[in-house]
Structure formats: structure tokens, C-alpha cells
Design a protein around this nucleic acid. Structure first.
Lengths: 192, 192
DNA sequence: TAAAATAGCTAATATAATTAGCATAAATTA
DNA sequence: TAATTTATGCTAATTATATTAGCTATTTTA
């Protein structure tokens, strides 16, 4: 009997372990045990060992996130679409703490692959921003602002870094409204 | 002859290694070699080994950042102060890539100590926001927004995650202005 | 169904962290 | 200042994980 593993099943298990037991437990030892094989066997699927696996985990995370935000953006436009995307991002980070951590952690090795992985998400943002009257430069600035804010806020929230008892939902909402106001201003007060 | 180490010299060396050779090289082996001792000797200063050292490195980073932004905020008020703080934050992250990474990485273990370490920076923000007419809730939202944005933007920038060739300075500036506009709106258009 | 390729295994090796126990420098105190 | 204590370093041994090498059985394919 063989275990019948492949790259996908292994990566998904790694994501599960990251979320449920923390990123520190994403080791070949733990992973192999969960999959019912011995750790050297994993090299048959990931030649580059743990490094390659972590990189793939990072890519898997960004692709999953892209898929989520693509879905929620369908059938929406303008502020409605932006809000939906941002909430989907934040929810993803909350529901996949370990994976979300891996997504950021493994960008340590800044790579073309990482750029491509986030590009999917960036494209969704750009498409949504097409429903406003903005020039290309403005869109770039706005997308960067959203990405920065979303990653930082989600990361801090996820680690319990916001000490104050005030509602985090309210803060998140406040921030999104603030950015959206900025967008409206650029359009000379045109539609939301 | 003894090496004459203490916790501070060790942590500072760890920060240097993180910045110059990457966080992956912050190991007891490398650290001990740089300090001219053998790795077991470091346990005399850090009972908890590498874990404790990393935690202290994280705290050291936040304290350093706090010190920087406190300095630049002196003698400034309102938008001028906010801009100065934010640029100091971003510059710190750029000048201390490795340390900045450690500051975030080691919040994996969300702890009271981590909350306290960031509290210094939060206090500076609150003090600066006192120069505006805002209620406490608004201030909390705004500080959270800044923290989120600054951490995310700096982190992405630092890892080369913003692919577009457009000026990052302009994007950063755009974002700060957008948030500042939001603050002005809350005050009914009062002073900057 | 024979040959080839694949996916698992065990055994061995490498690297880093950690622990135990020793020695001596430095600091403290009688 | 001598004696004592404590702190800081060392070496040797242990543990944990990643990784490599080489073997075997299963699966796939010609």
C-alpha cells in the first residue's frame, strides 16, 4: 500500500497544520506523521525539501486569497465591491492565521514567484477601481495603500496586537471609509 | 580573558546580523562566532536559549523604533508631526530590514510583553493626535489605521512586494495625505 | 506481461540547539 | 589582601530535525 500523496495534498496538509497548530509545527517531521509517511518520502514530491515546501505554501495561500476576493467582487461595483474585497481579505487572514503568516513569512525570499502570486489579487483591485474615474497613477497609489493597510491591520489583529478594547470591526470600517473618501475626493465628489 | 558579554551587546549583535545577513542567520552558532565565544556560552546570558533571544530582539526593535519616532515628534504638531512620525517609521523599516522582520516575526507568540513594547509607539501617536479635536474613539481608530498601514506598507516595500515602477515615495505620501484628510473631515475642516 | 518509472522505506550523515559538568576569571567579602 | 563566592566561559555529550543514499515494492506504460 502506498499513501498516494501528491504536491497538492501535502501543501493542503501543511496549510492545515499551520492554521491549527501554528507555523512552527510545519516541519517535515510533523507533516510526514500527519500524512502517514516517513519524512524522507516527502523529498519525492519536493526536491528542495522544506524550503521548497514553504515557498509553495506561500504561493498556495496567495492563490487561495485571490480566489476568495475574486468571488466576492463578482456582481459588485465601486465602494460596495471595495468593501467586499477588503472584508474578504480580513476574514481570510482571521480564518487562516497560520497560512496567512506563511504568506508573509516566506516573502523573506523576495522572488518573481511571490510577485506573480500577489499579482492576481492586485488585478482584482485594479478591475474594481476601473469603476471609478481615476487615472493609472492614482489607481496604483490606491491599490498600494489598500494592500499595505490590509496586510498590516490583519497581521496585527491576528496576533492580538491591538490592545485597546474598542471594536476592531469599527476600526476596520473607519479605515476603509477613510480611504474610500480619499477616492471620492479624487473624483471631485462623484459617485460611490 | 573573558569576552565580557552582556544581554545588550548580544542583542545588538543579533540585530546587526539580522540587518546585514538576514534573519535566517540569527542563530546561536553565527551569533557566538561573531561575538568570539562558543554557542553554549550564550546560555549564561539567555537561559531560554534562542527563543528568549529572539523575543528580546523583538522587544529591542520596538523600543528602538519608539525612540526614533519620539525624537522626530518633538517640536512638531498636527499634520507636520504625523508625517514626521510616519516617515521615521518607514525609514526605520528600510534601514533595519532584518530587525523589522524580527519585530513582526516574533509577535507569533502574542504576549503581554509585545503589547507593552508597541505601547510606547502608540503613546506617541496618541499624544500627537491630541493636537487635533478628536474624541477618544476616533483617536483609537486613527492610530490603528496608521499602525496597520505603516506595518503593511513598510513590510511589503521592504520585501520588494510592490512590483509597479511608480514611485513608492509618492504612494506613501498619497496614503498619508488620504488618512490626514480623513482626520480633517472629522474635525469639520479645522486646521492641519 | 515485461520494462520503466515512481513513491515509499531504512540507514546514515549533517547541522544546530541544548544540557551537563568542569575550570577559571572576576568580583565580593571577611 | 586573602579567601570565598559567583559568574562566565569552555568541552563533551545529547537531542532534534533536515537531508542524502541506496534499496524495494508498487504502479504505470509500452
Amino acid at each position: 500500500m502506498r499513501a498516494g500523496l501528491n504536491r497538492t495534498t501535502i501543501i493542503e496538509m501543511a496549510a492545515d497544520i499551520a492554521d491549527e497548530r501554528g507555523i512552527a509545527n510545519v516541519t517535515l517531521k510533523v507533516l510526514a506523521a500527519e500524512l502517514g509517511v516517513k519524512s524522507p518520502s516527502l523529498y519525492k514530491h519536493f526536491n528542495g525539501g522544506l524550503d521548497e515546501l514553504n515557498k509553495e505554501l506561500m504561493l498556495y495561500g496567495w492563490h487561495s486569497l485571490e480566489s476568495k476576493i475574486t468571488k466576492v467582487a463578482i456582481g459588485r461595483a465601486k465602494d460596495d465591491a471595495v468593501m467586499a474585497i477588503c472584508y474578504a481579505y480580513r476574514n481570510f487572514a482571521a480564518e487562516h492565521k497560520g497560512l496567512f503568516e506563511a504568506m508573509q513569512w516566506y516573502n523573506m525570499y523576495q522572488s518573481e514567484e511571490h510577485l506573480q502570486a500577489t499579482q492576481g489579487m492586485v488585478s482584482v483591485f485594479f478591475q474594481v477601481l476601473d469603476s471609478y474615474e481615476l487615472n493609472e497613477e492614482q489607481k496604483v497609489h490606491i491599490v498600494r495603500m489598500f494592500r499595505g493597510f490590509l496586510q498590516g491591520f490583519s497581521s496585527i489583529e491576528s496576533h492580538g496586537g491591538y490592545g485597546n478594547p474598542l471594536s476592531l470591526n469599527d476600526s476596520f470600517d473607519f479605515a476603509l471609509k477613510t480611504i474610500l473618501n480619499g477616492i471620492h475626493d479624487l473624483q471631485g465628489g462623484k459617485g460611490k
